[in-house]
Design a protein around this nucleic acid. Structure first.
Length: 590
DNA sequence: GCCGTTTTCGGCCCGACTGTTTTCAGTCG
């Protein structure tokens, strides 16, 4: 997960160089950097892993640095890693990292990103050839020195040179929304290969991670070689990393190059393989530990018994059941601690709990369909109610509604609602919060609506203070019910404005307002960690599609899956409420 | 480096593929 920021998290410490602010992020980054340096020195991988693990423990802990009085007694933090933390807190820097930096040139660290190069090989390049950067590595390759090293050869040298060509140009990870069309395209290709009996996308994509570094497909076939060849022929392949009986790893041409792994398995192995490659890695490690305690061994092919027999399963559900565990949806498989939260699965938000969508647009502003068409589609999804929320006049590029047009629209919504059976259509607005911290409509007009959303669409670069002034003006207005997409981010594209989200969540709790999880895969805003914080404070969350067309109403599924990642309880999600409960929460009667 | 109601030493998840090797280390997920 992208770890954007922690709730207020500062501690200031004096060092010889003056005031240094050490926060949790700095500690985590330092531990990770130490691990990288050690990796390059060829350190014991378990030692390297211990530093990474310590960083992970801190990252997982929801508390701020100031709240953690027991930081040195956390499981996973011991003498060595604890000393680094103490060092940072007392001196503002880590003595160990300083020493490591003297031994390892900074230019070596990015080389770890070159496929095929790990700590040991880079260490060798450094010690034998004096390589200390991408440039000197290129020079060494071109001079033919690399292929002369033991353990290296001609092919390795060529591969490194080829990788250096595009070095640093490719993004590490791609957003879920950008991978979605690639997943669909590959699914179609697999459907068309006769030797493929079944397939499924797994990996972090299946877990609805915001960003994924690659795509993983599990393919059931009795003829892996044929499928391997058919895939290589049908896909726009721009590079092949591995190709065998069990797997195919290729880079596929799309907007951005996408790395795709295919694993070929039998139908008996399918459930185990799907579970294994869905991960997360830590979830799998935890599962394997559980298996080991019982004398069993989990692999991607099944569960090996003490007598060597391999058990296979017809579904992930029966796989979990074998270990006396309930089915954990992919979205909650994270650091392994989820396995202790099985009793919360019962109330975890699910798609079938959703009975409304509270944020959508029509042709009245910048949507593609009419009020009745949207209503018809929502009814088709089985919803009991919905809200039409077109833009307000400030947003001219979106054909925002003037007060007069909004009053016309209210009449039309009421008419459509009276005409249509099986769904209740409510009147709302997505009103702009203007740059000067005023609202786009007056209170009198707002009081005529059933549901009022307020959101920011302009002047993102204002200082946080001003952004918070705007948000406060909206959230404290008694007519405003919900703040939409609270940070304005577009994943992988723009950060959005920078509100103090923790403060916003406190205000929502104080004024009894709803915060939105915008289900649009570009946004997924609120982000996971904030959803968890909001839930902790009892702030109701709405999962809304913000649909601008009928098709986009399907974003709800992505939104729900993302909400699962934050373990949202269905009762906190206002879309699961009945119309009566919803209206009574808003203090409105109809 | 971290951990521990069988353990303070000896584990630490497991397997595929590649390239460089004559049986395996390194990398990757």
């Amino acid at each position: 997960m992208q770890n954007e920021s922690f709730p207020s998290d500062e501690g200031s410490f004096l060092s010889e160089r003056g005031m240094v602010t050490v926060n949790k992020k700095i500690i985590i980054k330092t531990l990770e950097e130490i691990a990288l340096h050690m990796e390059l020195l060829g350190e014991n991988p378990f030692k390297v892993g211990a530093f990474r693990k310590a960083a992970g423990v801190l990252e997982q802990d929801p508390r701020s640095l100031a709240e953690m009085d027991d930081i040195l007694s956390l499981k996973g933090i011991g003498k060595g890693t604890g000393a680094v933390i103490t060092d940072l807190l007392e001196k503002g820097e880590s003595e160990l990292l300083k020493e490591l930096r003297e031994q390892v040139p900074d230019g070596l660290i990015p080389l770890l990103k070159i496929p095929g190069l790990g700590g040991k090989k880079i260490a060798k390049l450094h010690s034998e050839l004096g390589v200390d950067s991408a440039d000197s590595l290129r020079a060494a390759c071109e001079a033919g020195e690399v292929s002369k090293l033991a353990g290296f050869g001609k092919k390795t040298e060529e591969k490194i040179l080829a990788e250096l060509e595009t070095f640093g140009q490719r993004p590490d990870k791609l957003p879920h929304w950008q991978l979605e069309p690639v997943v669909r395209m590959i699914g179609n290709v697999l459907d068309a290969i006769p030797e493929v009996d079944r397939h499924k996308v797994t990996g972090s994509y299946r877990r609805t991670a915001e960003l994924s570094s690659d795509l993983d497909f599990i393919v059931v076939t009795r003829e892996p070689q044929r499928v391997n060849e058919a895939l290589a022929a049908a896909l726009p392949v721009i590079g092949t990393d591995a190709s065998g009986e069990a797997k195919l790893s290729v880079t596929v041409d799309s907007d951005e190059p996408v790395d795709v792994d295919f694993r070929f398995v039998t139908k008996e192995q399918f459930a185990s393989a799907v579970h294994h490659f869905t991960g997360s890695k830590d979830h799998n490690v935890r599962m394997r530990q559980i298996a080991k305690e019982r004398g069993e061994k989990i692999s991607e092919y099944g569960v090996e018994q003490e007598d060597g027999r391999i058990l296979t399963f017809d579904s992930e559900k029966s796989f979990y059941a074998h270990f006396d565990l309930p089915f954990f949806p992919p979205t909650v498989r994270k650091d392994g601690t989820e396995l202790e939260r099985g009793d919360e699965l019962e109330t975890l938000i699910r798609q079938e709990d959703i009975r409304s969508d509270l944020h959508m647009h029509t042709v009245w502003s910048d949507g593609a369909e009419s009020i009745r068409e949207m209503a018809d589609a929502c009814r088709g999804l089985g919803y009991s109610h919905m809200v039409i929320t077109d833009h307000s006049r400030y947003l001219r590029v979106a054909n925002g509604l003037t007060p007069e047009r909004l009053r016309d629209q209210i009449r039309e919504v009421r008419e459509a609602d009276a005409e249509m059976d099986g769904i209740t259509i409510l009147c709302g607005t997505e009103m702009d919060i203007l740059p000067d911290a005023t609202l786009d409509f007056d209170d009198e007009l707002l009081s005529e609506l059933d549901f009022v959303i307020a959101s920011i669409h302009s002047n993102f670069s204002q200082p946080q203070e001003k952004i918070m002034e705007r948000l406060h003006a909206a959230i404290s207005n008694p007519h405003v019910d919900m703040i939409a997409h609270p940070t304005g981010r577009i994943i992988g594209r723009r950060e959005g404005y920078s509100p103090d989200v923790a403060q916003l969540i406190d205000w929502a709790a104080e004024y009894g307002k709803i915060l939105e999880l915008n289900a649009n895969p570009y946004r997924l805003d609120l982000a996971e960690e904030w959803l968890a914080l909001a839930a902790e404070k009892g702030v109701p969350i709405a999962i809304n599609t913000d649909a601008h067309s009928v098709g986009q109403l399907d974003y709800m599924e992505t939104g729900v899956r993302y909400a699962q990642r934050a373990w949202l309880n269905r009762d906190l999600v206002v879309n699961t409420w009945t119309l009566d409960r919803f209206l009574s929460h808003l203090g409105r009667e109809r």
